[in-house]
Amino acid sequence: MSIRERLSGNEAAAIAMKQINPDVVAAFPITPSTEIPQYFSTFVSNGSVDTEFVAVESEHSAMSACIGAEAAGARAMTATSANGLSLMWEMIYIASSLRLPIVMSLVNRAVSGPLNIHNDHSDAMGVRDSGWIMLFSESNQEAYDNLLMAHRIAENPNVRLPLMVCQDGFITSHSIENIQLEEDELVKKFVGTYKPEHYLLNDKEPIAVGPLDLQAYLFEHKARTSRSYEKC
């Protein structure tokens, strides 16, 4: 039975993350997505998730921590907005080119300046060609539903790409709407456990992640990434 609730878009995203119960969340606060890691850290401190919460000093480090965790074999998530995503930019490409299915909750906001904290899609469009899958949510319900589907899509062996679930800053993130939540158990079953085929902490198979990729290979790897899009 679905649960009828009324939640803001940020609350909906945080609750989806609680139900997903990822291994690692690394995030840095930025309006309008601040509440997502804020609510999530409450879930960590009151024990309703087992997640390792990494309170980093910048978004660049947030994405770096997610990359490290995901390469190690863990499920990693983050949340950000606007200039936060801009600061992640370098690592955004690394996440997708290393084919790490990190899931991000992106609350879209205009990239400054002039300083504006409200919604446009310039942040997401700035990383449009990076190889991340983007799901855009029109309502709080979609922000929630898309996050529940995110890992299933990103981690699919034919896809293996990071994914961002976008919603509009303030328009949905801070508006309260009616929403239907799924039962915790059902979400857990649907999302499943993450079993990557190759990962750094597998002592049976030592691997190298992100080695030198010169002329003969780079385009091939990029082409493979773009082909994986078509399998989504």
């Binding site: 293996r160 080695p211 290979y217 082409a223 493979r224």
Partner: peptide, 22 residues
């Protein structure tokens, strides 16, 4: 794997699944 390997046969992200290959 060498420079003639078709892209379908490359590993994802160029990962190397053996040790001591330097």
């Amino acid at each position: 794997i060498n420079s003639k390997t078709p892209m379908e046969k490359l590993t994802e992200g160029g990962n190397i699944y053996t040790a001591g290959n330097a």
